[in-house]
Structure formats: C-alpha cells, structure tokens
Nucleic acid binder design. Structure first.
Lengths: 209, 209
DNA sequence: GTCATCATGTAAGCCGTTACATGATTGC
DNA sequence: GCAATCATGTAACGGCTTACATGATGAC
C-alpha cells in the first residue's frame, strides 16, 4: 500500500487505456507531460519494476507481431498497416518487448491516489488528465482543493516587488498572471464538474438565470 | 567547481543582495519561489553547508542585535524600529544565528552558472530573477535559449488530443495557452534586453514599423 | 502553561538523473 | 560500415522530503 509517485500515477493512468510496453509508454508519457519533462529510461524501468513488485502492474505476453490485433493496441495497428517498414520489422525478429497491464489492485490504488487529499500538488496536471476515473464528487473535491491552494498562493503574494529590478518585476507579474489564469481555469473545471455532480452544489435560493 | 543546484542558485542570488541567516533566507526563498515551493530546513541547511564546504559562502559574525545597523540588513532594521517586540527580543538573548555571506568565488560561480547554456531549464525563473548580474549579451542569450525551447515545446504539441475526454482536452488547452503566454513573455524580455545590449540585434535593412 | 515564532540542525529513505551496457534492424 | 530507431535494463550518485531533536522567548 505504498503511495504512488507522480510517475507511477502517469504510468498507471496510461495503462488504464490499454496495455503498453516500456518504450511506447515513454513516448506516451512525453506527449502527456510535455516533451521536456523527459522521463528517462533510468526512471521509467525502475518505476515499472517497482509497480510490478507491488502487484500494481503485471507483464503479459507480447501479442503484437504474432497476433497483431489486441485490445487497445488498435492505434498501433493502424500505423502498422500503413507503414511498410513496420510490417517488415514485425515479420522478422524484434527484440522481445515486455508488455505491461494494470492489475485490479493497481486500478484501485490509482483511483485512490487520484482522489487523495494528501497527494502531491505537483501532480495536479496528471490528476486532471485521469480525473474521469474518479467519482464525480471526488473530482469536484480535487478541483476545489486546487482552487483553494491557488487562491492562497495568490493571497500570499503581497508587497514583494520592493527593491526588484525590471526583470524580476516582470517575472513576478508573469507568475501572478499565471496564477490568475490557473484560478480561472480551475473555476471552469469546477463549473464543468458541478453540472455532472448531483450533490454538493445545491445553493438554495439561488439565482435562476 | 561543482554545479550549483536550483536551490544553490537562489541562495547565492539572495546573498548578493546582503548577508542573511538561514531562517531569514528561508522566508526570502519562499517569497521568491512562491510560497508553495516550500524550501524546508532539511534542504536549506544542508545546502548552506555544502556551499560553505565548497567555499562559495562563509559565515560571518552576527552583527544584528549587538550592532543593529549593518549593510543590507537595513530592511530588517526598519521593522526593528517599528516593532517593539523585536526590540525586546534583541535586547535580551536570542539563539545564536549564523549569518552567511557570499564569497568572491561564490559570486563568480553564480554569474557563471546563471549564464551556463547547459544549466537546468527548471531554474529559468531563478535565473531571470538574478539576470541583472549577467552581462547584457549573456542575458540576451539566456532569453533566446529559453525562447527556442518554449517554441520547440509548442511545435512538439501536435495531434495529441485524439481519444481525450473533456478534462484532458481542457488541460491540454490550458498548457498550450501557458506555453504561448510564456513565449510572449520571453519575447518581451528579449526586446527589453535588446535595447540594453549594444551588439547582436543590428538587423540591417530592417522594417521601420 | 502552552502555543507560536525564532533558530539551527541531523538521519533515513527514496526517487530521479546520468552514464553505461547490450543488441537487432533499417536506411544511407 | 555507420548512424538512428527500437528495446530493456543496471549502477552510482546526489539531493530533496520527512521526521526528529533542541531550546529560548513572548503572547494569551
């Protein structure tokens, strides 16, 4: 029952959408987290082994190349059909790939950690990326907590630009703007989530508009 | 000649503006990096010791409380005069404070690492905060490198929102917007730096707006 | 009398980064 | 032949986080 890292969270989340091998996982992580978060193999593979040891993921047989069609590897198959190079590679030998799948325990841990109020705030983006896995009320809570945090961050930013040169003032302005935009974004997320959550926003005597 | 960490960079930069003790340093770091980057003592003090071992900082006598006025502790003194509580604390005993000062080697290393092209991109904000310490051309280079990186990050973000739910799409949009805004900001910084850099922007035959 | 603030540290653990090692295949 | 891509790992190192330890003082 160890706590999932940011990386673990991302891996587990991606595996929900389908079984993947390490190399492909790295590419998906890059496009999910942005290309410059560069998850290296040196952290990816140990993370996978960690998750495997914990029983959160398991390796399955590599069905691709032998039986190309399989579950969520459909996208890969499309490219497979279009690209002659891939076909060639598959027919001849390719280095053995270890394909990972998320276990039930892994799925449970993922949904638990996604909604964990004590979770790392740096993983908020990842949590949003997979928040559809959460029940509506927990999703709403996730957004609300973030909102409060960002608002607090904004409130804490007072009278700091005395004795700051132009560059630092520009930096502070930029960061303030960032926080304001994030606040607006989270508010939008909250609004979006509220329409899907039956409870928790029954402000009685409200304004009909 | 070890490479300064993000934290080392921030510490050194703050010490340029005046000698400080650890506790005060932590507060300054919080307002510089944002309150939720929470530099804890568990990382601050080891970092200070590291810097001291390397000869980048040195401890000096705590002039405050004995001789309240001293160099860059002026701001503290102002509060000191206004606040009776502080006066009382200072006159009676207070736990011994270790006041750190930046050595010449530390200053040299700081300006070197601020302009280092191989430096960590995550420390860009800190670099900007102290970029006035750089010669104009290196400052401009710093901004330009960032610009290229952000632009590359934007270029790398293509066709990723297939099979994404509303929340993830919203996240991607938000992150895209962030990148665009950062690009605009960095462009502004570049423009600002160009007016101060004599060389390097002599685009001949230019457009007179 | 107890809590918050000021003030400085140590120790364990863990995760990520970097560099190294291996090996097949495709394209130039 | 050489580089690039695919593919999976190991080993060392270092820094950050968390928790713990200590101790004075002022406010309620």
């Amino acid at each position: 029952m160890l706590k999932l890292t940011m990386l673990d969270l991302a891996i587990s989340g991606l595996l929900v959408e389908g079984d993947l091998h390490g190399y492909e996982l790295k590419k998906r992580l890059a496009e999910l987290l942005g290309s410059w978060s560069s998850v290296s193999f040196g952290s990816l593979y140990p993370a996978l082994r960690r998750l495997e040891r914990g029983g959160y993921v398991a390796t399955v047989e590599d069905v691709d190349a032998a039986t190309p069609m399989s579950g969520s590897l459909g996208a890969e198959l499309a490219a497979f059909r279009r690209d002659p190079a891939r076909r060639a590679r598959a027919s001849t030998g390719r280095r053995a790939r270890k394909v990972y799948t998320l276990t039930e325990a892994g799925h449970a841990q993922l949904t638990h950690d996604l909604g964990d109020p004590n979770g790392d705030e740096k993983s908020f983006a990842i949590r949003v990326a997979f928040c559809r896995l959460l029940p509506p009320d927990q999703r709403l809570e996730l957004f609300r907590r973030r909102r409060d945090l960002v608002a607090a961050g904004l409130a804490g930013r007072v009278e700091r630009d005395a004795r700051a040169d132009q560059y630092r003032r520009s930096l502070f302005e930029f960061q303030d703007d960032r926080l304001h935009r994030e606040l607006a974004w989270v508010d939008q997320l909250i609004a979006s989530a509220e329409t899907e959550s039956p409870t928790d926003h029954l402000t009685p005597g409200g304004s009909p508009s």
